[in-house]
Design a binder for these strands. Structure first.
Lengths: 192, 192
DNA sequence: CGATTCTTTGAAAACAGTCAATCTGTGTGG
DNA sequence: CCACACAGATTGACTGTTTTCAAAGAATCG
């Protein structure tokens, strides 16, 4: 199970065998069945989780009780609620598995110790954060400047892997439109 | 001019006088008149800029030619296009001054040298990035889960300082609604 | 004052949301 | 292996919201 992570991380940065061994020693594998929660509202997010296999979502309940999906994550993505993770306060989010999944997890404590011992690891983490920031900024730009149809087109371009993997009503939730509207956009789009 | 920065940074982290002197030595003050650009589409963003005084905006031109404002920034905020800054590619954004403004700027090169010499400075920067990430995630949540009226209410709550400082049509652009709609929401809202 | 820039208002058209019904495919238990 | 339940997707009719276009009213600045 650690093999997949090793392959991933060595593409991103270079680490010695010793360093990899340290990282492996601190990791905890975790399996989730479909529909199982990794995090629930009120919990404190204390882990970084790397997805070896499967598909998860991060979402939040609105005042209306509806689910609003903030992100999806599949193989070679990371998932956690960074807000609760960095503040130590209870999370407002849920994370659950859309498919049976396999994760590697590290506690915040272990993670920070690794960052101190392995500078390249800390740098990798920071680059990751910077990229996530940029991705979020682009999503905000899409939300304020695109029509619903354009958002859908961009979604398929930006995340082609999700398209065949998550149900349509969840894509609608992610995009901030109703499932009926997305369904209609899609059928219009197919007739061209 | 550096005094304002010194006050700011010492609230966020602790630095010795020597370290502060290094940071000051690498800083370049910059004044901008209202409407003047700090960055234009096609430029490469090579600086970090701290706002000592004034108000700026980061925006982008849509395919329709409309301006879409991604963020505002005032005293004690930072502004740059992080995407171009970290990739070194030409930016898709504009930054300009909404008021006569005073900035302190550091080149990427100088900044990175400071981070290497002053670990506390690097940590400060990373905390800042993490907070920006969280703020963006919350904004995405607002976009997918709130009505236009609720977005406006949240805007006033989250950024009360901007409200009396930037024109309404720019707030509309920031929220992703037309100025007419925002005007109507506002008058409805006033009648309660 | 005159010229911008900003805000408001009205009316029509486009768009998206809701509710309710139907259709489709998948998988489970008898 | 079939029937049924269930989750997901689609469609229609209706309602409500938002945009667009056009015009006019404030406010600000040189």
């Amino acid at each position: 199970m650690f093999e997949a992570f090793k392959k991933y991380i060595l593409e991103k940065t270079s680490l010695t065998d010793e360093e990899l061994a340290l990282i492996e020693a601190a990791s905890v594998p975790k399996k989730l069945r479909k529909k199982q929660y990794l995090l629930q509202e009120g919990d404190v997010s204390r882990h970084n989780s790397f997805i070896v296999k499967g598909c998860l979502r991060l979402y939040r309940l609105g005042t209306d009780g509806n689910e609003h999906i903030l992100r999806f994550a599949i193989e070679n993505w990371w998932i956690s609620d960074r807000e609760s993770y960095s503040t130590g306060l209870p999370t407002k989010y849920y994370i659950d598995a859309l498919e049976d999944s396999e994760l590697l997890t590290w506690t915040k404590q272990n993670w920070e110790a690794l960052e101190k011992k392995i500078p390249a690891f800390a740098e990798f983490r920071e680059r990751l954060l910077a990229r996530s920031f940029i991705a979020n900024q682009n999503r905000i730009n899409n939300h304020i400047s695109l029509t619903a149809e354009e958002k859908y087109q961009h979604f398929m371009q930006d995340y082609p892997d999700f398209y065949n993997r998550v149900p349509l009503h969840m894509i609608a939730s992610f995009l901030g439109v109703s499932r009926e509207t997305l369904s209609r956009i899609r059928s219009q789009y197919a007739h061209k």
